[in-house]
Computed example of a mutant assay.
Amino acid sequence: MTIAKIDFAELYRQHMRRGNRAPKPASAWDARAKDMSRKVLHSNYVDDFIKRMDLRGASTLLDVGCGPGTVCLPLAAGMQRVYGLDYSKKMLDCLMANAKARHLDNVVPLRCAWEDDWSQVPVCDIAIASRSTAVDDIEQAIIKLNSHARKRVYMTHLVGGYFVDKQIATLLGRHHQTVPDYIYVVNILHALGIHPRLDYIETPSRLAGAKDFATFAEKVAWSFGTLKTSELDALRTWYEDDPQRACEGGGPMRWAFMSWEPRP
C-alpha cells in the first residue's frame, strides 16, 4: 500500500467517532464566554500566532471560531474589515463588546457553525482557524477555509490528541477519548494538493492556575464530561500529591501551526 491509497479524511472521521466525545453545544460556550473574554485577549499564544502570519497585501480577514476575538481583534486595526464567525451568540456578544472597548468599528459578527451553509460568508484575503478545529469532518472544514481565503490560510490543531495532560486521561481511564492528532490534517492537506508550512506553539495546560481542587475538577470535567466519584477521588490524589504539578495543571499543550496559500 502507498500513502496515496490511504483515506486520511475517513480515518479522521472514524477516530472522532471512536473517541465518543460529545460535541459542545453553543450553550456550553455561551456559559464560558465572559470568563474566556477576560483571559484570552492577552496571551503569549496570540503573540506566537500573529508573529507567524504574513499580513502583506491583506485588508480583510475571516476568523472561524473567533470566540471573544482572541486573534482577530489584535489584527483588526490593520484591516479594512474583520469577520468573526462563531456559533455561540455570547461569544459574538463578547467579540463586539471587546471591539467597542478598542474603538474598532470594522468588526462584523457572523453567527455560523463549521457545519452550516457558508454561501453567505464573505471570501477574505486571510482566513484563520485558531484552536477551533476539533470538528467531526476536518476535510470539509479545510475545504471551507481554503475556499474563503484569497491569499493565505492559518490554522492550529492539537498535537497529541489530549486537551489535558495524558497522565490525567490515563488516571481516569479516559485514554481512549482522544481527538485526532494534527498529523491527520497534514495528510488530508497533502491529499487535497496543499503543501502547508508547519510550526508549533506551546501553551500552559488549560488546567493551570486552578485556585482549588473544585475548580481543577471542573476544568477536567469540561474536557471529559461528568466525573464519577471514583474518578474524582483518583484525581484528588493526583492533585494533592504534588502541589507544583497541580498548579501547572500537568504538562503543557502543543498546537501545530499550519499555513498555506489557497488553491482553486
Results as ranks from 00 to 15, higher is better:
Ala234Met: 10
Ala113Val: 04
Pro25Trp: 11
Trp255Val: 10
Leu110Tyr: 07
Arg32Asn: 05
Leu104Pro: 03
Thr133Asn: 13
Ser132Gln: 07
Val220Ser: 08
His103Met: 01
Thr70Met: 12
Gly65Asp: 05
Lys151Gly: 05
Val82Gln: 02
Ile168Glu: 01
Pro204Met: 11
Asp35Glu: 09
Ile188Arg: 11
Asp181Asn: 12
Trp29Ser: 01
Gly69Glu: 03
Arg197Met: 09
Lys219Ser: 02
Ala134Gly: 06
Glu240Trp: 03
Pro25Cys: 10
Arg150Trp: 00
Ala217Ser: 12
Gly84Val: 02
Leu104Arg: 05
Trp114Leu: 02
Val186Trp: 06
Arg263Gly: 14
Arg254Trp: 09
Arg206Met: 12
Ala221Asn: 01
Ala234Tyr: 00
Arg245Thr: 13
Asn20Met: 14
Asp242Ile: 10
Thr237Arg: 08
Pro262Cys: 04
Ala31Gly: 00
Met253Arg: 14
Leu110Thr: 02
Ile138Trp: 05
Ile168Phe: 02
Leu192Gln: 13
Thr229Met: 09
Asn44Lys: 05
Asn146Pro: 08
Thr60Cys: 03
Val108Asn: 04
Tyr45His: 11
Ser259His: 05
Val107Trp: 00
His157Met: 08
Met1Gln: 01
Asp241Ser: 15
Val108Met: 03
Gly65Arg: 11
Arg13Trp: 07
Lys5Ser: 15
Asp105Gln: 09
Lys90Tyr: 07
Tyr239Glu: 00
Val121Cys: 01
